[in-house]
């Protein structure tokens, strides 16, 4: 650990705001990219499943 206390860690030697804004924005970009892709994948798979189910009218496939 480079810092002696948690307050020092937050303060980053008076550069705290800059460092945290930079890291925050990076985290925001990465997380939103991840969640957008994941929700796309989920809704995409869901609609594919519905399309397949609606094509197959046999009751055994509806489980």
């Amino acid at each position: 650990m480079y810092f002696d206390s948690f307050a020092e860690f937050l303060q980053m030697g008076n550069h705290g705001l800059y460092v945290w804004v930079a890291y925050g924005s990076t985290l925001l970009v990465l997380l939103s990219a991840f969640f957008i892709t994941r929700s796309m994948a989920r809704s995409g798979e869901e609609s594919i499943r519905w399309a397949i189910l609606s094509r197959q009218v046999e009751p055994k496939n509806e489980s």
Binding site: Y2, F3, F9, M12, G13, H15, A22, Y23, T26
Partner: peptide, 21 residues
């Protein structure tokens, strides 16, 4: 990068931004 890497002796802790930039 945030907690363990040493600060730059000239730039101080703003150097840590390099790790995401």
């Amino acid at each position: 990068a945030l907690a363990f890497a040493p600060a730059d002796y000239q730039q101080g802790n703003s150097f840590r931004i390099m790790y995401v930039h």
